[in-house]
Design a protein around this nucleic acid. Structure first.
Lengths: 229, 229
DNA sequence: TAGTTAATGATAGTAATACTATTATTTTTG
DNA sequence: CAAAAATAATAGTATTACTATCATTAACTA
């Protein structure tokens, strides 16, 4: 439903995450495309540039000309994902007047099943979403987080939490924890997804719909409001 | 305040996480003690058994006689932490009759500042808490999570989420997302702590007290109840 | 107290990782 | 067609994550 509204959009990712823009060449796009499939297949720990080189029939050293290391590659990929989601969020909620409806719609965008977006043919958004669920935390749970944060590596995610926080504040200006609630929802939506897949006894959610219902109830009852379901 | 109520308690950790029980010898305890300080200093990625051996003036190969690898070592440490927290949780809430007060107390245990527990002299609980905040997710965000879950590596954490879920259900049996809310609170308390330390713009919490207030409000408003603050 | 066993230490070795550096070849483009 | 840019090939390094073997020390037991 999000597709084809605007053609030729490019998701802008912090330039420091790459040495050479992977969107600028065929090899770059192949690195991203098969990097996504390799990481989602074998997990970030076992993923190496050497293996990726082998898969795309290209040389390890060529990949290093695009990305400094696999950590930065992960930050590139997940930033792209959040940039893509942010784009959807803005597009979907922008025209909505009623602040409560807007907030509800935002939660929907965050929880609805990810679908392939044909605007970006070299990126498998469904596989990338799995990477975000399983690996995103690893991009910031490091000793370098403060330096990398200063360098702007997490800007898109932060902006997204900021937007969600603003929407919460717009609905209920008196609520004191809009930022915390926004970050809880962002992280919680990933975490609950992971639990559905691996620890179903720790969650009541069974699909995207019930996850949406749960988070909507969480947010709106925190704001002392009923939902509009 | 939790100290010395019962002497000689041993926190029981799944035996599969170690080759030889580190509590059973002096070397084992030194491995745990300095393992905690090394991981909290340099982070889990840069931590190696070789470095730990050097620090304790012992041989790398001797450490391998206690733990198969550093992943299992992390699971051992974090399981110990959750076991210790569970013990506090049960001890603190057990005698409380009023279910709402009990739940509130549980949230307090989860969010209150961690203090050294002299019952376990070789374990620095404050440093271990930092490890849980920064590294716990890495113990389950792996491709081996399902197998390890089957082998019971995450039992204590799951039991703890289960207990919290039960407390929520006891307060409001009609609430449909007690498990999800419990897991959100468990993970959320760690995540918000991390944000306080590294991404203060993404949270409204500034200390343990405000984190407690936030989570209490989150839980009790989800249950359509006012808090007892 | 000698003898056995268990625990720890020392040393060496392996395959893989995470790169860097250099040179060669191919492709692009002016 | 020549120069420049991009990619590939090859080699090399320090470190990691182990395993294996053998030596030494400590503990406990007959």
């Amino acid at each position: 439903m999000m597709k084809h509204i605007i053609k030729n959009v490019k998701i802008a990712v912090n330039e420091k995450t790459y040495v050479k823009d992977p969107e600028s060449s065929d090899l770059g796009k192949r690195i991203v495309e098969h990097g996504i499939s390799l990481i989602s297949e074998m997990g970030f720990e076992k993923f190496t540039f050497r293996k990726l080189g082998t898969r795309i029939g290209s040389n390890e050293s060529s990949i290093y000309r695009y990305f400094e290391n696999k950590h930065k590659f992960l930050i590139y990929l997940t930033s792209w994902y959040w940039g893509w989601k942010e784009y959807q969020l803005v597009l979907t909620t922008n025209s909505i007047q009623d602040e409560a409806v807007k907030l509800e719609k935002a939660l929907e965008v965050l929880t609805e099943p990810v679908e392939e977006d044909s605007s970006f043919s070299h990126i498998d958004e469904v596989a990338l979403y799995q990477i975000v669920i399983n690996e995103y935390s690893k991009s910031f749970l490091t000793k370098e987080v403060d330096r990398e944060n200063k360098e702007g590596y997490f800007e898109i995610y932060k902006r997204m939490v900021g937007r969600l926080g603003e929407m919460i504040r717009a609905v209920q200006p008196g609520y004191a924890y809009a930022g915390s609630l926004a970050s809880t929802v962002m992280e919680g939506s990933l975490y609950q997804h992971f639990l559905m897949d691996h620890f179903p006894s720790l969650t009541d959610c069974t699909d995207d719909r019930s996850l949406f219902d749960y988070l909507r109830h969480l947010v709106f009852s925190s704001l002392n409001l009923e939902t509009h379901g």
